[in-house]
Simulated scan of single mutants.
Amino acid sequence: MSEKKYQVAIIGGGITGATVACLLAEKGISVALVDAGDPSAEWPQESYDLRVSALTLASINVFKSLGVWDEIVQLGEQPIEKMYVWDHFGSGELAIDSAEAGEMQMGAVVENRITVLALWKKLQLLKSCDVFKLTQLMSFETNEDGVSIQLSKNTQVNAQLLVGADGSNSKIRQLSGIEHYGWSYQQKALVAIIKPEKLHQNTAWQRFLPEGPLALLPLRDGLISIVWTSSVETTEGYLALSDSDFCRELVEASEQQLGKLELVSQRGAFPLALQFSSQYCQQRMVLIGDAIHTIHPLAGQGANLGLKDATVLADVVLKAHIAKRDIASEQVLRRYERQRKGDNLLMMGIMDGFKRLFAADQSLIKLTRSSGMGLINQSALLKNQICKYAMGV
């Protein structure tokens, strides 16, 4: 059995896990990054990942600091310069332009596989990081001195700190017995890549419909990525339609903002839920990203929350390392938890509140909602604040 010692072992090589690995390994921390797939694998040309993220300027700055943003741009990113939101009820609308806030863009839409590939390319250049592809976590044991981690392929690694970046169904969280709370929204989000008749104008479009929001995000090559939230039954019905019938429904739902629409990918769907853990860490183990929080996608903040977790965790670990303290001490891990828990809970509460506000069917609430959007749209100050919030600054 092969066995090697590291300072940090990270399970999950997606955006959050790979970012933590980069932030630590480039500072000389020895890192083992383990992923059940092969994030460095090539993909067919003219194909698109249904999983995309609307990255804020704050998240983009993290990637710039790591030196991977140029690679992401080369592989294919799409700036978001404007945002247009409107309600199915009344005349409520909100138009925001990043130029009015003194910025060239408020963020960018990037396929998840592009972001991950850029990060993995960086990791393969860092001597302090070993990557384990197509490798699964089997079990782990912690003690006062470290963590013994059993992987597939008859491999074992030892580390001072174990990081769970293994998603909403985190095996590390389950093996640790950490309780997870939340509820299902009884909704599914339908995702697909669409070719619009009209230019997307570097604009993120979102219409609030009775069953949930429809987001049309600008994507590379003049395409758009849609995230269409509806009840489970309605979404299943959309998935069963022919391509032409589905596009006809989509054109109607978007009120022809981008003209005729053509499907250029498969359609996929995933269930929506709010989930959170009250406990972020245990002895020599810590959770980040979707392993501790999942939120409604109506504002596209899931990946950005995970990146905030990644940067804060890396910061407290590096500070402990520089001070020659135990990087996995309870004091260090609790500092990360204190810094992130409040922000994560606030964002989850805001997104849940927005979801319920725009799903409300009472006439008075709908009227107030529509009027409120109109009033905000007339205030340059409020729109600039919303724009800065969307940028993550």
Rank of each mutant, 00 (worst) to 15 (best):
L375N: 04
M348F: 04
L367R: 09
I350A: 12
Q339V: 03
S370N: 09
R356S: 11
R369H: 12
L364A: 15
E330P: 06
K366Q: 15
A359K: 06
S329G: 08
I350R: 00
R356N: 07
D343T: 04
V332G: 07
G353D: 08
S370I: 12
Y336R: 03
S363F: 14
D361K: 13
R335A: 14
F358W: 13
M373H: 13
R335G: 01
G349C: 03
L367I: 04
D343W: 13
K366P: 10
L345I: 06
Y336H: 05
S370T: 12
Q339Y: 12
G342C: 01
L357F: 05
M351K: 06
I350Q: 05
K341P: 08
N344G: 09
G353P: 11
G374Y: 08
R335P: 00
M348K: 04
Q331H: 12
F354W: 13
T368D: 00
S371H: 15
G372L: 01
A360G: 09
N344W: 02
T368C: 14
K366R: 11
L333N: 10
R340P: 05
E330R: 15
A360I: 01
I327R: 06
D361P: 00
I376D: 08
L375K: 11
G353E: 07
A359H: 07
G374M: 15
R369N: 14
K366S: 02
L367M: 15
R338S: 11
R340Y: 00
L375F: 13
S370A: 03
K341Y: 05
T368K: 03
R338K: 14
G372M: 06
S329L: 07
L357T: 11
L333G: 02
L346W: 06
I365A: 02
Y336Q: 02
L367F: 10
N344D: 13
D352H: 14
R338Y: 08
R369S: 00
L357K: 00
G372V: 02
M373R: 11
G342V: 13
L346T: 14
A360K: 03
K341C: 00
M347A: 01
F354R: 02
Q331C: 07
L367D: 12
R340L: 09
K355Y: 09
I365Q: 01
E330W: 00
L367A: 14
